[in-house]
Design a protein around this nucleic acid. Structure first.
Length: 505
DNA sequence: CGTATTTGACCTGCGC
DNA sequence: GCGCAGGTCAAATACG
C-alpha cells in the first residue's frame, strides 16, 4: 500500500511537475500571445486611429473588407483569451484537487503512523496483562511502555538503523520490535545498552525477568520465524513479494529439496523465506518467513506480511503467557500442545478449517510459528456442533516433528478426557488443568478480542484464497467473519497451539 | 546482454 | 576436535 502510495506520490509529483511545466509554458505562450495581441491591438488601435484619419482623409478608397477581417480577428482573439482564462481556472481547480489529495495522503500517513504506535503500545499492554494481576501489570506496563517509547526515540536518533529491516514504514513488525526481533536487531545496540545500563533496562532485568527469560534463550542473531502451510501446486506461494532464489538444499528427513529465497523488492531487505514441500502431503507447501521487510510492500504482499508479523506477535504472547502459568515456563504436560478453535459463525462448513499453530518449543525457538492454511486438519478430528459453538473451544493437539497436527483427544464431542468449561472451552483434563487457571481463559478472551489478530487471520485467508485462485481452482466459501470472542488464543509453554477457523471455507 | 536460477563449495552452529 | 546438517555464497548456466 505504502509503496503504491509512494508511486502515486511520485506520479503525482511528476504530474504536478509536468503540469507546472505545462502551465508555465502555457503562461509563457499566453504572455507572448497577449503581447502579440497587445502589439497587434496597439498597432490596430494605432492603425485604427490612423486608419480613421486616413479613412477620413483618404475617403472611400479602401475596401470594407479590412475592418471586417480585423473585427473577426478581434473576436477570435477574445474568444481564445476567454478560452485561455477558462483553462487557467480549470488548471487552478485541478491543482487544488491535486494539492488536496496530496495533503490527504500525508494526513492519512500521519494518522497511520499514530495508529501503529498505539497498536504497538496496546500489544505490549495486552502482552503484559497476560502476565499477572491487574495492579502490578498496570504499573509494569506503564514502565515498559516508557521503555519502549524511550527505545523508539533512541531508534529515531539512530537513523542508520532503519537499514536493519525492522520497524519499517508499514509498521508490520508490530510489537515484535519490543520483543523477539529486537534481540536480533542490533547487537551493537545491545552492547551499548549493557554499557549504559539504562534505568528501564535495569527494570526489565529485575522486574520482568519472567518475560525476558523467554527471549533470552534466543540467540541475538536468531530472528522470529513464521511458517505458512498451504496447499499449493505451484513451486512457490505467490505472496505478493518479489523473491530471488539463492540456494537449494535437500534437508535431512525430507527428500523434497528446500529452496531459499531472498526478498528483492528492495536492495538489502533482510527478509528470507524457505520453501519446502510437506513430506506427508506433497500438495502442501511449507513457506517459512524470516525477518521483517525494510521497505514498503506491494499491495498484494501486505496481507501475508501482516499475517506473519501478527503471528509472530502471537508467538511472543504465547511465550510470555507461558511464563505466567508456571515458574519454569512449562505447563503440566510439556508435550501437549493446545489448540484454540474458532467455531462457526455463519454457515458452518464441516470440510473447512484453517489452523494457526505456533510451534514455540522452549527447546527450539527457531521453529517459530506455523500458520496452517491447509484444510486437512478437519479430517483429523470432529468438530463439535453443540450449543457452545459460538464460544471459543480449547482443544489439544499434538504436533509431530514434521508439524503434522494430530488430535490427542480423539473425538472431542465424546472424549472422556475433556469437558466443557462454563465459558465453552473444551478442556482436556489429562493434559492441562485450565479450569484451575481462570486467568488463562481471561487471557484467551484478551487475545481473541484483539482485532489485529482477527485482521491477521482474515488477511492470511484472503491472501491464501487469492493465491489459490491463481494456482488451483478451489471452491470458495463464505467470506471470513471474525466476531469478538470467536477467535481464541494463548498458549502454554508446551509451545504448540492451534487457532482454527473451521468456517473459513 | 542483463537478470534469474542452478549447484557445488564453503561457512557456521551444534551435538557427541 | 570431529562430523553432520542447515544455511549462504558465487561461479556457471539458462532464459528472455
Amino acid at each position: 500500500m505504502v509503496r503504491e502510495d509512494k508511486v502515486m506520490q511520485i506520479d503525482l509529483s511528476l504530474k504536478l511537475d509536468s503540469q507546472d511545466e505545462e502551465e508555465e509554458e502555457e503562461e509563457k505562450e499566453e504572455e507572448e500571445r497577449e503581447e502579440s495581441v497587445d502589439n497587434q491591438e496597439g498597432k490596430e488601435h494605432h492603425k485604427d486611429g490612423r486608419g480613421e484619419a486616413e479613412e477620413r482623409s483618404e475617403g472611400d478608397d479602401t475596401s470594407l473588407d479590412k475592418p471586417l477581417q480585423e473585427n473577426s480577428k478581434k473576436e477570435e482573439l477574445s474568444a481564445l483569451q476567454m478560452e485561455m482564462d477558462r483553462m487557467k481556472e480549470e488548471n487552478k481547480l485541478l491543482r487544488k484537487v491535486v494539492e488536496q489529495t496530496t495533503k490527504d495522503y500525508y494526513d492519512l500517513q500521519t494518522k497511520l503512523a499514530v495508529i501503529q504506535q498505539n497498536d504497538a503500545k496496546k500489544d505490549l499492554q495486552m502482552f503484559l496483562s497476560l502476565h499477572g494481576d491487574a495492579d502490578t501489570t498496570d504499573q509494569v506496563s506503564k514502565q515498559v511502555l516508557k521503555f519502549v517509547e524511550n527505545d523508539n526515540s533512541s531508534a529515531q536518533q539512530l537513523p542508520s538503523e532503519a537499514d536493519d529491516g525492522e520497524d519499517g514504514d508499514l509498521g508490520l513488525s508490530l510489537s515484535m520490535g519490543a520483543g523477539v526481533q529486537q534481540h536480533g536487531r542490533d547487537e551493537s545496540k545491545e552492547a551499548e545498552m549493557k554499557s549504559e545500563e539504562p534505568v528501564q533496562n535495569k527494570f526489565l532485568k529485575s522486574e520482568l525477568a519472567g518475560i525476558t527469560s523467554h527471549y533470552s534463550p534466543n540467540p541475538p542473531n536468531r530472528k522470529a520465524r513464521v511458517s505458512v502451510r498451504a496447499r499449493c501446486e505451484a513451486p512457490t506461494m505467490n505472496d505478493g513479494c518479489q523473491w530471488r532464489k539463492y540456494g537449494q538444499k535437500v534437508a535431512k528427513g525430507n527428500p523434497c529439496p528446500r529452496a531459499y529465497y531472498r526478498c528483492t523488492v528492495a536492495p538489502g531487505c533482510p527478509v528470507r523465506k524457505q520453501v519446502q514441500r510437506c513430506l506427508e502431503d506433497m500438495s502442501i507447501l511449507i513457506t517459512t518467513y524470516e525477518g521483517t521487510h525494510n521497505h514498503p510492500l506491494p499491495v498484494g504482499a501486505t496481507a501475508m506480511a501482516s499475517t506473519t508479523s501478527s503471528a509472530a506477535t502471537f508467538m511472543l504472547l504465547s511465550r510470555s503467557n507461558s511464563g505466567a502459568l508456571t515458574s519454569d515456563g512449562i505447563i503440566s504436560d510439556a508435550q501437549t500442545p493446545i489448540s484454540y478453535r474458532i467455531p462457526h459463525s455463519i454457515s458452518p462448513s464441516p470440510h473447512s478449517s484453517t489452523t494457526i499453530s505456533s510451534i514455540v518449543n522452549t527447546n527450539d525457538h527457531s521453529k517459530g510459528i506455523v500458520l496452517d492454511l491447509t484444510n486437512n486438519s478437519q479430517q483429523q478430528f470432529s468438530h463439535p456442533t453443540s450449543s457452545h459453538s459460538s464460544q471459543p473451544q480449547l482443544t489439544y493437539r499434538y504436533h509431530n516433528a514434521a508439524g503434522t497436527i494430530v488430535n490427542l483427544g480423539g473425538d472431542l464431542s465424546s472424549s472422556d478426557h475433556q469437558f466443557i468449561s462454563p465459558r465453552g472451552i473444551i478442556i482436556d483434563k489429562r493434559g492441562w488443568k485450565a479450569e484451575e487457571d481462570k486467568s488463562l481463559t481471561e487471557n484467551v478472551s484478551a487475545i481473541t478480542s484483539d482485532p489485529k489478530f482477527r485482521v491477521a487471520v482474515a488477511a492470511a485467508i484472503t491472501s491464501f484464497i487469492n493465491t489459490e485462485s491463481t494456482t488451483t481452482v478451489q471452491p470458495k466459501g463464505p467470506p471470513l467473519i471474525l466476531r469478538d470472542g470467536e477467535t481464541a488464543g494463548s498458549s502454554s509453554s508446551s509451545n504448540k497451539w492451534v487457532v482454527e477457523s473451521p468456517h473459513l471455507w
